[in-house]
Design a protein around this nucleic acid. Structure first.
Lengths: 195, 195
DNA sequence: CCGAATGTATCACAGCTGTGATAGAACGGG
DNA sequence: CCCGTTCTATCACAGCTGTGATACATTCGG
């Protein structure tokens, strides 16, 4: 099979370029041309790796979702019910903090995700990914509450924690002057401590 | 002063048209042409009332923000510290519920606001309005917590409530199958009851 | 009644967008 | 070496976008 370049690596580079554009100028500005320019690729080359704008968008969003899901899952696997409560709360915060903009990587993820979530409302071709992400967050919240309290949480408590995390991420990204990343983590800690 | 039509009324009609388009297809699709069509106006006429797309956008967002702020303020003015705690919680929920999609009007507002908030991140010409809205929500949350607990709340508690409300609105609008409007109100009630 | 303000309507233009089509170049297996 | 796959690169096209300019109609004050 004739092949010079690593197609997988190229696709990843393109996705990174899309993320840079989306963070800098918004997801709406991440057109094939701007992403190609950012990746220092000809638009024709880009289209060799992604047949359409939709395919690129979906691939990039899936890459982001999978990356976050993997981090969350790794923390889920390491939860130890035998630990002291303080420690359990700390682990719980660290787990959900994977969804908060506590470092540059996560900030970029949350930033792009906000645009993506808004876009998915009116774009049928992205709805399934958004729904998957929303379900994943609720699963994590449920697991975290169970880990902290030792009992199965109510759907109300699950939604309370989920919406709190989503709101914190949203505000920390949109209004960093009002809500710093540290603030967001503090609020999350306060919430889980009081459960 | 020669005048046939009520310019103020026309502007309001245009804003309503913009809202319908934004709710249906997203704020990004609310171009001068689509809004003019929706308002059954010629684009030339529309531009007679709004010189530019930015002016229209700012006017529409300001109209929405003012309307919500007026409703919140009205409820703030009616808060009675002498009431029983149950009643105070109910009033508190009703106040912040002005920011939740509990009826069609509020649903449309929250829906458009989500798009607007995301857009404002990368659009300098809209940032001030978004900042004003964010500050307003925090003021309402602070007042609500003070009313329920009888003491001045910490910034952490204010942000916890603010982000919870924002997250609930976001999720109720983006994932109504996961979070109904009634769910959102239930969660808010649970939170304020436990304060 | 007539001129100016107000409102309605078109056209044109540059700048984007996604995408179809096409043409070569680079590469490696046979 | 040669042929087919892979990759890079361009052009063209229709469809949007905001906006400047312009023309015309309507309305009303003086």
């Amino acid at each position: 099979m004739p092949k010079k370049v690593d197609a997988e690596a190229r696709r990843r580079e393109v996705v990174e370029a899309l993320f840079r554009v989306a963070v800098r100028e918004g997801l709406a500005r991440a057109s094939l041309r701007t992403v190609a320019d950012e990746a220092q690729l000809n638009i024709g080359s880009l289209r060799h790796y992604f047949d359409s704008q939709l395919e690129l968008m979906r691939f990039a969003m899936r890459a982001m979702l999978d990356r976050v899901a993997a981090r969350v899952q790794a923390r889920l696997d390491r939860l130890d019910p035998a630990e002291q409560r303080d420690e359990r709360v700390r682990d719980a915060v660290a787990l959900l903090a994977e969804l908060l903009p506590l470092d540059e990587t996560r900030r970029d993820e949350v930033t792009v995700f906000v645009d993506f979530a808004a876009l998915s409302r009116t774009n049928p071709d992205l709805r399934d990914l958004a729904a998957e992400a929303a379900a994943g967050t609720r699963g994590a919240a449920r697991a975290v509450l169970a880990h902290v309290t030792g009992t199965a949480p109510s759907t109300t408590e699950v939604e309370r924690l989920t919406s709190l995390v989503d709101g914190l991420g949203l505000n920390a990204v949109l209004h960093p002057d009002l809500v710093s990343s540290a603030d967001a983590e503090r609020v999350l800690t306060a919430h889980l401590t009081s459960r």
